[in-house]
Structures are given as structure tokens and as C-alpha cells.
């Protein structure tokens, strides 16, 4: 049952991916270097997604924490997007490292200086930074508010004397879930930064149209960011949703409202993770009219 949201997100992601692949086609280029680069990029992207999904499904099916401990299923659900993002990002980085090299006796290069984030699309970079900040906040707050077992939340009304009411709920994103999630997401973030550095420093595609080179590099950075963003959104959204379900029904009315807000925001983030995972990369522009002749 705990894996149902995961399967739902997976099916949604696959549907979005199939739809996006059907509608986003870049125009064919007459430059052989551009054709080779685009072929390499398409092969790398498909391999990264396939291996990422295989690793994610494998993790979900086998259950890395299926040792019978309480909360093991929850940890597996949190681990699945991390595994996807790690495999996806590593494959993309290897693809960038094996990008088509300059060939022939005469080589040309533009005197352009490329920074780490110059090629990163802002529509993914900003949400990724925001999601990372929200994830840190949720993990720390969950850890501090959680019970000693790290996966429950206790709310007490009264001062401990007669008439004191206390209610506990579990699961709750305390340190039990928070520490492994923080470790996993930190690895994803570090790998994403390393992959973006590889994207920024890989050889430029030799083309007479600088827009094509920029678009290819932007598409590479897009693919790196979308894997990391999907993992961040899924895990953070999942933790928020679970924390909403753990809010007690005793105490002030605002606590009930907070529970609804946490669940709605959490569910929205999980859905957004599926959208982010298969958001189409920027199109490569058509050849300049002079090249087409």
C-alpha cells in the first residue's frame, strides 16, 4: 500500500514522457557535427532514463530495507527517487564525458567563457534551489518535532496534571526518515553539481550557428537538473504529506488546517516531481538560413 503513490507517480511520469517525446521534435540539421552531437545526446538521455527507471523499480520491488523493521516500506519509498536520480545523473555525466570530440586537422573554437550555471535553464534551476531549501527546512523541522523513535509525533494538551490529553501518530518524518533522506538528497545534489560542471567544460559542437551549440548545452544541463529536481520534489512532498497525516485531531483548529495544507502541498510536490522528471528539453533551433541554402 505504501508503494501505491510511487506507482501512481511512475505511471504519470511515463505517460508524460511518452507524450512529450511525441510532440517535441527538433528540426533536422545539415551539419554532420550537429547530427552526431544530437544522436549522442538522445542516446545518453534514453539510457539515463531507462537505467534510472530500472534501478528505481528494482529498488521498489526488492525493498532495500525489507528487513521487517517498522518504517522499512517508508524508507524504501524515499530511497526510490534518490536511486533514480543518482543513476540518471551518473549516466548523463558519463555521456557528457564521452561527447563527440573535435576531429580533423583544422579545429575551430569560439572564445566564449562558460560558467558552471551559464547553461542551466532558469525554469529548472530556480525550482531546484527552492526545493533544496524546502527539503532542508522540512528535514530539520521534522527531526526536531519527531519523537525519540524518530518516526512519530506526539501532541499534548495541558500542563501534565489532571485533564492532560496526549495523542501520538506515526509515521512522521523524524530523524528515522530524515537522516537517510538527507544523506541521499545530498548525494544527488553533489552529483548534479559535478555533472553540471562536466556539461560546462565539455567540448563545444563545431557549428556555424552558435545558437545550436548553446541549445545543445542547455538541453544537457536541463536533463541533469530535471533528475535531481524530481528526487527533491518527490521526497520533500512525500515527507510533507506524511507529516500532514500525523497531525493530531486534538488541540486548536489551526492544527487541523495545517494538516490539510501540508497534505495538499505535499501531494502537489509529488505530482510536480513526475512533471519535472519528463519535462521536454529545450529544442535545438533549425539551421541558419545561410546553411540551409
Amino acid at each position: 500500500m505504501a508503494l501505491l503513490p510511487l506507482l501512481f507517480a511512475l505511471v504519470l511520469a511515463l505517460s508524460l514522457g511518452a507524450g512529450a517525446a511525441a510532440v517535441r521534435r527538433s528540426p533536422v540539421s545539415l551539419e554532420s557535427t550537429v547530427v552526431a552531437a544530437r544522436r549522442h545526446a538522445a542516446l545518453t538521455a534514453a539510457t539515463a532514463r531507462t537505467l534510472g527507471l530500472v534501478a528505481a523499480v528494482g529498488t521498489a520491488v526488492t525493498g532495500a530495507f525489507s528487513d521487517g523493521r517498522a518504517g522499512a516500506a517508508g524508507l524504501t519509498v524515499l530511497l526510490v527517487p534518490v536511486v533514480y536520480a543518482v543513476v540518471h545523473t551518473v549516466v548523463l555525466a558519463v555521456g557528457e564525458l564521452t561527447w563527440p570530440r573535435p576531429a580533423g586537422d583544422v579545429r575551430r573554437a569560439g572564445l566564449v567563457r562558460r560558467g558552471l550555471l551559464d547553461a542551466a535553464p532558469r525554469r529548472l534551476l530556480r525550482p531546484a534551489v527552492g526545493a533544496a531549501a524546502v527539503a532542508a527546512l522540512v528535514l530539520v523541522a521534522g527531526g526536531l518535532l519527531g519523537g525519540p523513535d524518530g518516526r512519530s509525533f506526539t501532541y499534548t494538551v495541558g500542563n501534565g496534571g489532571e485533564g492532560t490529553l496526549s495523542q501520538s501518530a506515526s509515521p512522521f518524518p523524524g530523524w528515522f526518515y530524515g537522516l537517510p533522506t538527507a544523506a541521499g538528497l545530498s548525494v544527488v545534489a553533489a552529483l548534479a553539481v559535478a555533472a553540471l560542471w562536466v556539461v560546462a567544460t565539455r567540448p563545444a559542437v563545431v557549428t556555424d550557428d552558435a545558437r545550436i551549440e548553446q541549445a545543445l548545452r542547455r538541453a544537457s544541463a536541463h536533463r541533469v537538473l530535471q533528475g535531481a529536481l524530481a528526487a527533491l520534489l518527490f521526497d520533500t512532498g512525500g515527507l510533507l504529506f506524511v507529516s500532514g497525516t500525523a497531525m493530531p485531531d486534538i488541540g486548536p483548529a489551526w492544527l487541523g488546517a495545517l494538516a490539510v495544507v501540508l497534505m495538499v502541498v505535499g501531494a502537489a510536490m509529488v505530482l510536480a516531481s513526475a512533471v519535472a522528471a519528463f519535462l521536454p528539453a529545450p529544442r535545438v533551433p533549425a539551421d541558419a538560413p545561410a546553411l540551409v541554402g
Binding site: 570530440r101 573535435p102 576531429a103 579545429r107 575551430r108 573554437a109 569560439g110 572564445l111 566564449v112 567563457r113 562558460r114 560546462a200 567544460t201 565539455r202 567540448p203 563545444a204
Partner: peptide
């Protein structure tokens, strides 16, 4: 600003 040595070398394949 000129490209970094590493980036220019990568672009030229040298």
C-alpha cells in the same frame, strides 16, 4: 575574459 585553459583545450581537442 578568455575561456579557461581546460575549456579551450577541450573545444580544440588539444
Amino acid at each position: 575574459r578568455l575561456p579557461t585553459m581546460r575549456a579551450l583545450a577541450a573545444d580544440l581537442g588539444i
